[in-house]
Design a protein around this nucleic acid. Sequence first.
DNA 1: CTAAATCATATCATTTATATAGGAATAAAA
DNA 2: TTTTATTCCTATATAAATGATATGATTTAG
Lengths: 169, 169
Amino acid sequence: MFTHRAKYAIKALVHLARRVGQGPVHAQTIADDEQIPERFLELILVQLRIGGLVRSRAGRGGGHFLEGSPEDISLLSVIRAIDEQIDPLPCLSTTAYVRCRDCDDEATCTTRHLFIKIQEQQSALLSHVTLASVMPKPRMAATPAASPKLRTPTHPVLVNANSQHSPTT
Amino acid sequence: MFTHRAKYAIKALVHLARRVGQGPVHAQTIADDEQIPERFLELILVQLRIGGLVRSRAGRGGGHFLEGSPEDISLLSVIRAIDEQIDPLPCLSTTAYVRCRDCDDEATCTTRHLFIKIQEQQSALLSHVTLASVMPKPRMAATPAASPKLRTPTHPVLVNANSQHSPTT
DNA sequence: CTAAATCATATCATTTATATAGGAATAAAA
DNA sequence: TTTTATTCCTATATAAATGATATGATTTAG
Ligand code: FES
Ligand code: FES
């Protein structure tokens, strides 16, 4: 289960991704639009800046904007910036490593080996899903090379809303 | 990050998987061997029983033993039995559904769509890893049909201990 | 200088996770 | 039937993480 923090971060990033090239956006604006507690969001934005996902300008006329392009921002990078622990076990984290008191030898620990597989695949999964996957796809067929002039981005594509999936819990 | 609860559950299940056909195992024994707090483990074993993963016999000479075969017990089924929430968002859980206060319409929520993909793949991932994947593989080539007489199971196979993987946090 | 914004740090409140405790129920054996 | 060994039920305590708020300092355009 991801935390609210992570969810808010992603909502904020998607918000910014949709306004790329339109100058900095106020934290206040994001908070209002996305219905996130303002002060809480500010903390999150600072984390994202430190993590290198957004940049900001202080003072009047300031705000936040994306550092890279949407396709470079994966869910994994967000989680890392937010400093959320998603490693399956504490003994499998490099940044927050904690030894398992109930295991004598990591090298032969069956459980650990089991979770290494999980970790690898989960990591791969999260790194392949990027902000771009929820952005309207530029139809480059007809439009040859979108004019550099800033215009309101095309309206968001409605992703399929059914897709019967089986919830895990 | 999985909880200690889940880890203990898996350790206990692996313990039992290695003793299939050897009669019930005391919770005390598992606790000692796996270095899990005894009373805490008991609670977990009850959950596993209710979840249908193990059976138990009360009273003298009682204990716990696997209900199904190791290849039928996936990490997903364990998580479900333990009642751990691994759905990425509360709005994506059927058993513990909670509406997102910061989202007006689930059908068009971008974040939700993003996480549905994660959920689907994570669910698939967890359901494919079973207890059998950490059990010694029966080499059915040489040994034709292992004698029904109970013998000490073949010693655990040493899984590869290196496999440079990239921790997620 | 002033207004509008980010930035830094501390603190509080709530929930969740972890663990422990006491004893009831069950079943085998003496 | 009594004893003994075990699971089972319910409650409670302790610790940690999460979510949110508060206060004010800092930055920068006008
Ligand atoms: S060493 Fe971490 S689970 Fe065994
Ligand atoms: S409805 Fe749950 S994230 Fe938007």
